[in-house]
């Protein structure tokens, strides 16, 4: 039991970028654009956040927050490429996303070489600092787990889940965005600008994936390297499907994957798991991703028009 309790904070750290990036994917796909570039956008966000943090740390204690803000902006700019290719040029969205994923690796390492003379950013010393919530941290049992020494990005992720739910299901913007992902011709016939809506969806997903990348590198790493994101963007994509394109579903799926990653760290301390080779637990999140995709992709129904080119004249 005590192991489980100590696992929770770690699991939350791992779950945070997954949930945030998956929410990004949610905006994009709800507007009708499949965004498998989440991984690449996270890399760009992570690189930018790590670089800015490493450079600013000596001069300000807020360096990590500047870094995260820069990561968000970089993510938005990078995602514009995807929006332009898939909305204006009517490129296949999967191909465009794949291109961005490949580009991100080369681009970030290239920029590292230019700015830091090595294939990674300089190391930062603290990254994002942990925070405690005064008062709440005193709650027995829950306090130390949920309110002591937690990264602010974790709270941001939970707030973003609530905000996303509100935006997507309660506001006119959400209704219009979903209509673009389900039946763009219907949306257009009601005077909605489908192209603008899809741009908005992709840019929001860029901002969130950029944030996720920044959050990830500044809480789980000491610098940005090519392996910093190691497939988390794809796990986020699996979460989106797993969570049925619903913010709370995404949160649940993200926590599940967070725990499965935390398990790889704690497995050696859990008696009945000690016999299992550690590599198995490293492998686990990815295997679960594949299984989740196989089991759920047939049944879960995503936005109907996601991935489809918008053709105003289609019957």
């Amino acid at each position: 039991m005590s192991i489980l309790l100590t696992m929770i904070p770690i699991a939350l750290v791992y779950a945070t970028p997954i949930v945030i990036a998956a929410l990004g994917g949610l905006y994009s796909e709800r507007s009708g654009i499949v965004n498998i570039a989440l991984e690449g956008i996270m890399m760009v966000g992570a690189f930018t956040a790590a670089a800015v943090t490493a450079v600013l740390e000596p001069s300000t204690t807020w360096a990590a927050y500047y870094g995260i803000a820069a990561g968000i902006v970089a993510g938005m700019i990078f995602s514009l490429l995807h929006a332009f290719a898939s909305v204006n040029l009517k490129a296949d969205q999967v191909v465009s996303g794949t291109a961005l994923n490949i580009l991100a690796g080369g681009l970030t390492v290239y920029l590292c070489q230019i700015f830091f003379d090595q294939q990674r950013t300089n190391a930062f010393t603290t990254g994002l600092a942990k925070v405690s919530v005064p008062g709440l941290k005193g709650i027995p049992f829950l306090g130390p787990v949920l309110f002591m020494d937690v990264y602010s990005t974790t709270y941001a992720a939970i707030l973003l889940v609530l905000l996303t739910w509100f935006v997507v299901y309660k506001t006119p913007f959400g209704l219009r965005m979903r209509s673009c992902g389900e039946h763009p011709q219907a949306a257009a016939s009601m005077g909605i600008n489908v192209l603008a809506m899809r741009y908005t969806g992709v840019i929001i997903s860029g901002a969130l994936a950029g944030l996720a990348g920044g959050a990830m590198v500044l809480t789980q790493d000491i610098q940005y390297t090519l392996g910093s994101i190691h497939g988390t963007g794809f796990i986020a994509l699996a979460c989106l499907i797993f969570g049925k394109w619903n913010p709370f579903g995404v949160l649940g799926a993200g926590l599940f994957f967070g725990f499965s990653q935390a398990l790889s760290i704690y497995a050696k301390d859990i008696a009945f798991l000690q016999k299992v080779p550690l590599d198995f637990f490293y492998m686990l999140p990815y295997v679960l991703t594949v299984i989740a995709l196989v089991v759920f992709s047939g049944k879960s129904v995503g936005p109907k028009a996601a991935g489809e080119l918008y053709d105003a004249g289609k019957r």
Partner: peptide, 8 residues
Amino acid sequence: HFKLVHNF
């Protein structure tokens, strides 16, 4: 051809 969103 109706322009309706099927799951709305």
